[in-house]
Computed example of a mutant assay.
Amino acid sequence: MDIELIKSLSKYPFASNVELYDSTELKQNKTCKEKCKEKDCLNLLDSDQNKSEYICSKGYNNILIIVDDIKFILNGLIYKDNKTIPLGRKDVRKEHIVNKTDVFIFISKIEEIEKHLVNRINENTEKNFSMFHDFKTSMSIFYSCTQDIINKLPGNSFLEKLENSDDAYKDLYNSLDLITSQLGMIDVIINPRSISFGTKRSINMYRLFEKIKILFGHLSTKKQDINIKLSSEVYVNDCLCYESIEFIPLILLDNALKYSVPGSDIEIKFEHHYGVLKVIVKNIGPLVSDEDAPYIFDKFYRSEAGKKFSKEGIGMGLWIAQEILKAHNSELHYHKNPNSIGSNGLNIFEFELPI
C-alpha cells in the first residue's frame, strides 16, 4: 500500500516522512499545518510498534499505523477524553474531536484492505510466473544436453574438457548455467517462504561470487567492456546458510552490471570483523538519490534514474536479496561515495554474515 492509496482511503488527516496530508473527509488540523514548528508527532516514525500513541507538544492525539512497511501517523486528532488541549481550542477544532473506537475501526479496515491487496498481488504473481516453470524445465533439458556434448570432448574431467574447448562452447555453457540460476529465483518470487526451505549448510561466499563472476565474464566484457574484480585480503571462512544464499552473488553482480558505465570496474571485496564476514560490492554508475534510497529494496521499485540508464529489470532483484538476507538475520545496505559529483558515481552494497 503506497501513500497515494492511503490518501484516497484515509478518513483522518495523516503524516508520513515529513509531509502532512489531508484526508478525503477532513483537512489537516490548522495548528499542525500552520502553527506547529516542532512537528514532534513525526517522532512516532522511529517506532516499530503498530498503533503506538503519542500526545504532541500541542496536546493533540497521534497514532502510528504500519502497513506493508509503510509508516504513517494519524495526526492532530482530539480524543473525547483528551484533557491536554484548552477548551477554547477544542471549540474551534470540533471536527477533529473523534471517538478512539472509530479510529481503531478505521485502522482495522486499512489492515484488512492491505491483506486483500497482498493476497491479490500474490495470486497474480503466481499466475504470471507459473508459465516460466515449463520454460525452466525446457532450459534444464537444454542445459543437460550441453553438458553431454562437452562430456564427449577430449579430457579427463568435465572442467578440463570445458577449459580446453572452443570459446563458443564455454560461452554457451556459461550462458545456460547463468540462465538456469536466474530461473531458480522464480520459486522465491512465487513463494518467498522457500528462502528458508531445507537445512543450513556450510557455504563459501568467495567461491559463490567466483562462480558467478565466471558466468557473467563473457557478458561483462562483450557488452560493456566491464571488468569484474574479486579480491580478499583474508582467507574467507564458510558461513552456515540456506541454499537460497546462492542467489545473492547472482543478484548483486547482475545489478552492478546493469547499472555500470561502460569501461568501468566492479569490485567485490571480503573482510573479517570479529567472527563476521563482510561482503562489499562496488560499481560506477547512476547514483541512487536520497529520496529513492529508502525504497530501492521494495518489491517492483525502480528509480527514474535507473529506468533511464537501463531498460532491463522489473525491480525484484534487490527485494529478493533483502528477503534472503533477512532470513539469515542480516541486511543489505546501500550507500554512495559522498564525494561523487554528477549523476554517476561510486555505488556500494554490503552485507554481513556470521562465520
Rank of each mutant, 00 (worst) to 15 (best):
S47Q: 12
L74I: 10
D48A: 07
D69Q: 15
L77P: 05
K71L: 12
V98P: 08
K94T: 02
K83L: 12
K51L: 10
V103Y: 11
G59Q: 09
K83F: 09
V98Q: 07
D68R: 03
L64E: 09
G88D: 02
E95D: 15
Y60V: 07
I66E: 08
N75Q: 15
K83T: 14
I73F: 08
K90S: 04
I63M: 05
G76Y: 09
N75Y: 00
L77A: 00
I66P: 03
E112V: 05
V103R: 03
L77H: 04
V67S: 06
I63E: 01
I97D: 01
G76N: 09
K83H: 11
S57R: 10
E114C: 11
V103A: 01
N75D: 11
K109M: 07
D102T: 08
F106W: 15
L87P: 09
I70E: 14
D68F: 01
I85V: 15
D69W: 06
E53A: 00
I107N: 00
I70K: 07
E112S: 14
H96G: 07
D48P: 00
V92I: 15
S52P: 04
I85L: 14
G76K: 01
E53M: 08
L64Y: 11
H96C: 06
L77C: 02
K109A: 01
L64V: 06
G88R: 13
G59P: 01
V67L: 15
I85C: 06
K58H: 11
D68Q: 13
I113T: 10
P86H: 11
S57D: 11
E111D: 11
L64Q: 10
S52G: 03
E53R: 11
K51Y: 01
I97M: 12
P86A: 10
Q49G: 02
D68Y: 00
E114W: 03
F106C: 06
D81N: 14
K100G: 00
E111H: 08
T84P: 02
K80P: 08
R93M: 11
L77V: 05
I107V: 14
K90M: 13
G59S: 11
I66T: 04
K94V: 02
V67R: 02
C56F: 02
D81T: 13
I66A: 05
G88C: 00
L64H: 12
I97H: 02
I105E: 14
Y79F: 15
L74F: 13
S47V: 03
E95K: 10
N61S: 14
V92M: 10
V92D: 12
Y79E: 01
C56E: 01
I110T: 02
L87V: 06
I78T: 03
Y79H: 02
K109F: 06
D46S: 12
I78Q: 04
S47L: 12
L74V: 09
I97P: 05
K94Y: 00
D69H: 13
N75M: 14
I70Y: 07
N82L: 00
Q49C: 04
I105Q: 10
P86F: 05
I85E: 01
Y54P: 07
D102K: 13
I73V: 15
H96M: 06
I113L: 11
D46I: 01
T101E: 15
K71V: 03
L74K: 03
E111I: 08
I63C: 08
D91Y: 11
R89H: 08
Y60S: 04
R93L: 10
I70A: 01
E114T: 14
D48H: 13
N99L: 11
I97A: 00
